[in-house]
Design a protein around this nucleic acid. Structure first.
Length: 296
DNA sequence: CATATGTCCTGAGAGC
DNA sequence: TGCTCTCAGGACATAT
């Protein structure tokens, strides 16, 4: 699940690890198949053991641990991965444990962060170590687009103005804009009052402006509520507590309920490129009056 | 049995 | 025809 708001919440939740040194790297033994490490686990452990974590960042839906030799550990949660500093939901799906020590005695005892963990139920997530000189080829602008919280309406329109794809499908393309996933794409387009089936090259500058405003509003609000924990309960923040933005969803997984804005139509579920899309057929139309973007 | 929030790859078909 | 774009489908692995 983790999309930009969930990954950003994870990142903020493990910031206490900045300044600590990686004292041990453990892959808990389990009957499950290992997640994918690049390079393989043993060489990866050798590369990061003894290094100090100098910064913790985010690139789209990935958490980045910057090390003191300018190399990078990239944690990619994909469907069910979690980055944790508190005890994980269970031991079975714990995939990686970094044991941390304060780098200087000055830090000891202040903020406690003795372990940084990666937990992943389905095991589709990945952990990758990148030497400094390889970072750009994997995470550079030709591989991943601008962050969804930073891209401008003009830049987004420029990148999609000749596209024949439906706008909802295009917003999921991480090379175009990074961080939007299936859940937030529906929420963003509902707030923007744009039909998710509308073709990109037919959208007006005004519609792109509303999409950008809604992107920022929805993602920032979702971060404020620490992301969405759906009915399966999988997503947790770094302290293993659920988010609460699911209580503010307007359309996602709400087919058959009245539209919270116009109160007229029922929310519909359709399928686009094999994935669910939710929208209100009354206030998200290709043509006709577009609604005001309400304050969030 | 079908469903699930992400990403990567291959191949078929459409359209300029 | 050739090139580019788009999408279906499968894969990954687990749980409800």
């Amino acid at each position: 699940m983790p999309e930009l708001p969930e990954v950003e919440t994870m990142r903020r939740g493990v910031l206490a690890a900045v300044g600590t040194t990686i004292a041990a790297v453990e892959r808990p033994r389990s009957k499950l198949q290992s997640i994918k490490f690049t390079p393989d686990f043993s060489p990866l452990r050798r590369r990061i053991l003894g290094r100090t974590i100098t910064e913790i960042g985010r690139r789209g839906k990935r958490v980045l641990l910057g090390l003191d030799d300018r190399s990078l550990v990239v944690i990619e949660p994909r469907m069910t991965g979690l980055v944790l500093v508190a005890d994980p939901p269970n031991e079975t799906h714990l995939r990686l444990v970094l044991h941390l020590e304060p780098a200087s005695s000055a830090q000891a005892g202040s903020r406690d962060c003795s372990r940084l963990m990666f937990w992943d139920q389905r095991g589709l997530g990945t952990v990758t170590w990148l030497a400094a000189e390889k970072i750009d080829s994997v995470l550079g602008p030709h591989r991943i687009g601008p962050d969804a919280l930073e891209i401008s309406a003009d830049e987004l329109r420029l990148r999609l103005r000749s596209s024949r794809r439906a706008v909802k499908v295009a917003l999921l393309d991480q090379k175009i804009v990074a961080g939007i996933g299936n859940l937030y794409a529906s929420e963003i387009l509902h707030l923007a009052g744009v039909d998710p089936r509308a073709t990109c090259h037919r959208l007006s500058a005004d519609q792109w402006e509303r999409i950008i405003q809604s992107t920022r509003a929805v993602l920032q609000e979702a971060i404020r509520f620490e992301g969405s924990t759906l009915s399966d309960g999988t997503y947790r923040n770094a302290l293993n507590n659920p988010g609460s933005y699911q209580n503010h969803h307007r359309v996602y997984d709400r087919a058959g309920t009245p539209c919270p804005r116009c109160q007229q139509g029922e929310i519909l579920r359709i399928v686009q490129t094999q994935r669910s899309t939710y929208y209100c057929p009354k206030c998200q139309q290709r043509r006709g009056k577009h609604p005001l973007v309400p304050a969030v």
